[in-house]
């Protein structure tokens, strides 16, 4: 009798009931309601989600999937970014030629394309996510704070994209970054051409000048150059993603703590 039952078991089930599988996923192939809930609860990645959701929450027409896609793009960009880092050297001497090599020498060289278009797409998906959250009124209490965290994450996405813009070290890159960072010169009090900067002086020695203002700190020099490339590289690959990950953790955790996905009462 028992042998017959074993024969009916599919390969998937056999695998699912094996001791190795069970040691990793703790439950077998989820068949019953209970097992399916346990599959979510017992998995570190899936337990971002609750085990059960209201029916409207799984409808693409309601969520547009944009928040999830933004996170997915962050993962895609991290992976392609790591691959790009194997080949790319952030120096004025090598940066541009390394980028050319990425397309011409590296097999299946579309990593840079996926990285760049993914970055643009991520800006769009975060914007659309924000639009959806606004249009469904999902920022209203008790989710006010999480909306603010989302705004910060969107700003960080723009900063990630902007710092990455410099790395190819072509004309497009340095001039876009020059235009962008020139603004810092006009920061009130802290920029050399900002209102109030001349007030920060000892006698007639200005404390804030072109070689000491926020723009200088951002660029590591008076112009977009070698030091800027290194600074933006570190910001792009380590500093901003690190900050973004902290805010993402808060963002996701707060969705659950604020009562899960929004919905009509």
């Amino acid at each position: 009798m028992e042998e017959k039952n074993n024969k009916k078991e599919s390969i998937l089930e056999k695998l699912g009931n094996s001791s190795v599988w069970k040691s990793i996923f703790r439950s077998g192939v989820p068949r019953t309601r209970r097992q399916r809930m346990y599959a979510v609860l017992g998995n570190v990645f899936l337990h971002l989600h609750p085990a059960r959701l209201p029916r409207h929450a799984v409808k693409v027409g309601y969520t547009w999937c944009m928040g999830g896609l933004s996170f997915f793009l962050f993962v895609v960009l991290t992976i392609t970014g790591i691959l790009l880092m194997f080949y790319y050297r952030p120096t004025v001497e090598y940066a541009f030629t390394d980028i050319i090599d990425l397309g011409e020498q590296v097999p299946l060289g579309i990593m840079r394309e996926i990285h760049r278009w993914g970055a643009h797409a991520m800006v769009l998906t975060t914007w659309l996510h924000m639009l959806r959250v606004f249009m469904t009124g999902s920022y209203k209490p008790p989710r006010e704070f999480n909306w603010a965290v989302g705004v910060i994450l969107m700003t960080l996405t723009l900063l990630l994209s902007f710092t990455g813009y410099l790395l190819p070290w072509d004309q497009l890159a340095i001039w876009a970054v020059t235009v962008g960072t020139n603004m810092a010169r006009a920061t009130p009090f802290l920029g050399s051409e900002g209102p109030g900067a001349s007030l920060l002086a000892i006698g007639d020695i200005n404390l804030v000048h072109a070689a000491s203002d926020v723009r200088f700190a951002l660029l590591g020099g008076r112009f977009v150059g070698e030091a800027t490339l290194l600074r933006f590289y570190v910001l792009h690959c380590i500093a901003v993603p690190f900050i973004a990950m902290i805010f993402m953790a808060v963002h996701f955790w707060r969705i659950r703590k604020d009562g899960g996905i929004s919905g009509p009462l």
């Binding site: 541009f96 394309e113 996926i114 278009w117 070290w169 072509d170 004309q171 001039w175 020059t178």
Partner: peptide
Amino acid sequence: LIVWAILVPAPLEEPANPAATPNPSKAP
């Protein structure tokens, strides 16, 4: 994303040249 990446090469202009300002210079 992959189709987009295959069809459209990522833009790359001439190497950076601090002496030649393009007109217009645009931010991203």
